[in-house]
Amino acid sequence: MITADKFLIPARELGFNFFTGTPCSYLKPFINYVIDTDGFDFVDSVNEGDAIAIAAGATVGGKRAVVMFQNSGLGNAVNPITSLTYTFNIPVMIITTLRGEPGGPADEPQHELMGQITTAMLETMRLKWAFFPQTEEEVAPALKAADEYMKKHNQPFVFVMRKDDIAEYKLQKKPAASKKDFSITHTDHFELDYKARTTRTPVLEVLQKSVALSAAVIATTGKTGREFYEVGDQKNQLYMVGSMGCALAFGLGLAMVKPKLKVIVLDGDGALLMRTGSMATAGAYKPKNLVHILIDNEAHDSTGGQGTVTGGVSFGTIAAGFGYDKIYSTDRLEKFSEIVEEVKKNDVVTFVHMKTQKGSPEKLGRPKVTPAEVSVRFAEFVQSK
């Protein structure tokens, strides 16, 4: 057993000072120490997958990030681990606990199976891992091994923490006072029949022409990224492949570590429905440079046009409830163009809901640059700002 500072201070000396994740009783001393101690930043994520994406965005922005969660939530993190950090070569440190350890201390029944398969899952995902150091003497070589692996391979490294690896540490800081009175009023401004709306590509053309190279733009997976590439490939654009629903969390991590750079996230309705909770994190941390644009065609356009449920959903009202400061909605292209000009000047976390109809250009291609190449040039762009 070691105290939290015996690992965290040497980790900080290696540059690991951005932490995100979800709680676990095994991790409690770690999370508490990070929250209490100057020189660390901690983002409370709503789930483990979002934490991976937040850390990935922070890493691309130039930070070294650590993700912490209970192994029961490892399943939530599988998709962004295998299709975001692996695919884009983004090295984050992961610390997962080992609840339900075979032969270990008695635990709750819901941890039994996950405890048996946690390390096998890590190996199936081709993740390099090691047990968390149990003595102060083991810390330096453990961190050295993780640091060297991450730098050499540009891939995550995982520490598996067992019960009582970390000594108790009680949180000293008091949480911010909760809001007592809420008054939310929002009216969406959608005027056109579905078939009278524009498709997605003209929306992307308007945005790119207006923004040019003045902001970092993250396009969600599927046809949004593919169409954005076809509109014009630029170094400030990242086209997500896979990791569906993680564009906002990735953009949030980036926006928090690059506060002088405007960060625009292009989301889709199916993707945002999948991870709506990331809006709560964005609204809570309120990065002033974050613009979240939802292009909503009420369909899973990339998989055959099956409908989503967003025809009856007011995302603007949801954004208001989650704490976004500026909210816009429209289904007119000319109005969207006006909104883009306005949000470029905003200095508050902003949400834009743009309704479209489904449909893409015939013979829509795919990016000819690889995700790894996109990641390198995108990181160079954002880190130069």
Score class of each variant (00 low, 15 high):
2 I>L: 07
14 L>G: 04
15 G>C: 05
19 F>S: 03
19 F>V: 05
24 C>D: 07
31 I>K: 00
31 I>A: 02
35 I>C: 10
48 E>Q: 07
56 A>P: 05
57 G>E: 02
71 N>Q: 09
73 G>P: 07
73 G>E: 04
74 L>S: 04
77 A>T: 09
81 I>E: 00
82 T>D: 07
86 Y>Q: 14
87 T>F: 05
88 F>N: 08
91 P>W: 00
92 V>F: 03
112 E>G: 09
131 F>T: 04
133 P>A: 10
135 T>W: 11
135 T>C: 15
145 A>W: 08
154 N>K: 14
157 F>M: 03
169 Y>R: 10
169 Y>M: 10
171 L>D: 06
171 L>N: 09
176 A>K: 14
177 A>Y: 08
178 S>R: 15
180 K>P: 10
182 F>W: 14
185 T>W: 07
185 T>A: 11
192 L>R: 12
193 D>N: 13
195 K>V: 09
198 T>R: 08
207 L>F: 03
212 A>C: 11
226 R>Y: 12
235 K>T: 14
240 M>W: 01
241 V>G: 06
247 A>L: 07
254 L>P: 02
255 A>C: 09
257 V>R: 00
259 P>Y: 01
261 L>H: 08
265 V>F: 11
280 A>S: 14
281 T>L: 06
288 K>R: 14
289 N>K: 04
305 G>L: 10
308 T>V: 10
314 S>Y: 07
318 I>H: 07
319 A>K: 00
323 G>Q: 04
326 K>N: 13
328 Y>H: 08
330 T>R: 01
334 E>F: 04
336 F>I: 13
339 I>Y: 01
347 D>F: 07
357 Q>A: 08
364 L>G: 10
365 G>A: 15
366 R>Q: 15
375 S>E: 07
377 R>P: 13
380 E>M: 12
382 V>T: 10
383 Q>K: 15
